[in-house]
């Protein structure tokens, strides 16, 4: 357990370092949902190549590492209904709220943005409530 916390903190430092590079060098906020969402709804086509480059690094480099190390099980559910519902909710929700865990959680809280803090508290509480409902009351996940 404590090993996980240390790895969590170390991985977190890397996530923050990535965000710091993207902010200080590129002048952009590292928000995963915004980077892809702007490509999807065309609002971010003005800097599409920068977005695509970020996403390429994000998708391909962990992919290469996992390939070299012989696989990784992310324990994703095999319930297709749950997967589709979850994906749609994450897609709509992050675009309505203009951010997700990286944009609001990491980049927002670190600049003491009221919106970032409010969004993070809200999605954690909503996630906790959903977990209580779907896992402990319905037994669906």
């Amino acid at each position: 357990m404590q090993q996980d916390w240390i790895m969590g903190f170390a991985g977190g430092l890397m996530i923050g370092l990535a965000g710091a590079i993207f902010l200080l060098v590129n002048g952009r906020i590292m928000g995963a949902s915004g980077l892809i969402g702007g490509l999807v709804d065309r609002s971010g086509w003005g800097n599409a190549s920068e977005r695509l480059s970020f996403l390429a690094g994000l998708i391909l480099v962990p992919g290469a590492l996992v390939l070299m190390r012989g696989g990784y099980d992310n324990h994703l559910t095999d319930n297709l209904t749950v997967i589709i519902a979850a994906g749609v909710l994450v897609g709509i929700g992050t675009r309505l709220a203009n951010g997700c865990t990286s944009g609001h959680g990491v980049c927002g809280i670190s600049r003491l943005s009221l919106r970032g803090i409010a969004a993070t508290v809200t999605f954690i509480l909503a996630g906790g409530a959903a977990m209580l409902f779907f896992r402990h009351l319905l037994g669906a996940i």
Partner: peptide
């Protein structure tokens, strides 16, 4: 911001994945 975060949180919990 608030409604979107509620939807996102629910989806995040369902699959354990964020973007």
């Amino acid at each position: 911001l608030i409604f979107g975060s509620i939807l996102f949180g629910a989806g995040w919990a369902l699959a354990g994945l964020c973007p």
